[in-house]
Amino acid sequence: MSGLENLTLPELLARLEDITTPEPVSYIPQTTAWYLLAAVLLLVLAAVSWRLAARYRMNRYRREALAALMEIERQSTTDSHSEVQVAALLRCTALSSYPRANVAALHGGTWLAFLDHCYGGKDFSDGPGRVIADAPYQPAHLLSAYERAGLLGAARSWVRKHRAGDRHA
C-alpha cells in the first residue's frame, strides 16, 4: 500500500503540491520578420498620412471657395446681383487650380464650356450657370430666387467636383 490510507482529509490536503503554471507567453515578436513587418506597416501608415495631409492642404482653395459661396448665398436677396460675385469667385477658383494660360483668356461660351468640361456637367452651358458668361461685362440684372438658387447650386457643384490641375482642360 501507499501509506496514505490512514491519513485524514486535512493531512492529505497538506501533502498536495501546487500546480506549476508555465511562464506567460511574451507579446514581443521573437523573429526579425515581425520587426520588418512592423517597419513596413509604419512606412505605409506614414505615407498614407502624408498623402492625406497633402490632399487636405491642396484642397484649401475649395474650402475657401465653398465658404465664400455660402457667404454670397447668405447675403443674396432678390435685389442683389450675386451672378457677378459668383462669376468672379469661379474665375478665381479656376485660376487657383488650373494654369493661368488655360483660364485667363476664356470668356463667354468658351468659359462656360471650360467649366462644364472640368467637372463633367452641363450646368453652365445649358443650365442655370449660363448667366455668368457675360455677368461681369454687362449691367447687372435681377435674378429670380429660382435662378439664383440654380446658379449657386451649379457653382457649389463645380467647386466640389472639378478635377483640379487638369492641364489639358
Rank of each mutant, 00 (worst) to 15 (best):
Y35W: 13
Q85F: 11
A169M: 02
Y137C: 01
I19W: 12
L112I: 13
D123F: 02
R55L: 08
T78N: 15
F114D: 00
K161L: 15
A53L: 10
W50L: 10
L106N: 06
L52T: 02
H107D: 07
L16N: 05
A39S: 11
G108I: 13
L52F: 02
I132K: 03
K122T: 15
T77C: 11
P139D: 14
R100G: 00
T110H: 11
L42H: 02
L4Q: 12
G120H: 12
L143W: 07
T31E: 10
T110N: 14
Y61W: 00
Y98I: 01
E83D: 15
M58Y: 04
W158A: 13
L69S: 13
V84D: 03
N102P: 00
L95T: 00
G109D: 15
S2I: 05
G150Q: 13
G121Y: 05
L9C: 02
L52P: 00
E5F: 14
H168S: 02
L52E: 04
E147D: 14
D126I: 05
F124V: 09
A87G: 12
V48M: 01
L151Q: 13
A87N: 10
S76C: 09
I72Q: 09
L9M: 04
D126A: 11
R55T: 00
A145K: 06
L95V: 04
A14R: 05
L42M: 09
L36P: 02
I19N: 10
A33W: 02
S96C: 10
T8H: 04
Y98S: 01
T21V: 15
L16E: 05
G127D: 08
Y119G: 07
L115G: 11
L152G: 07
A104R: 06
Q30R: 14
L90N: 07
L36R: 13
E147R: 14
G120P: 08
T110Y: 04
T110F: 05
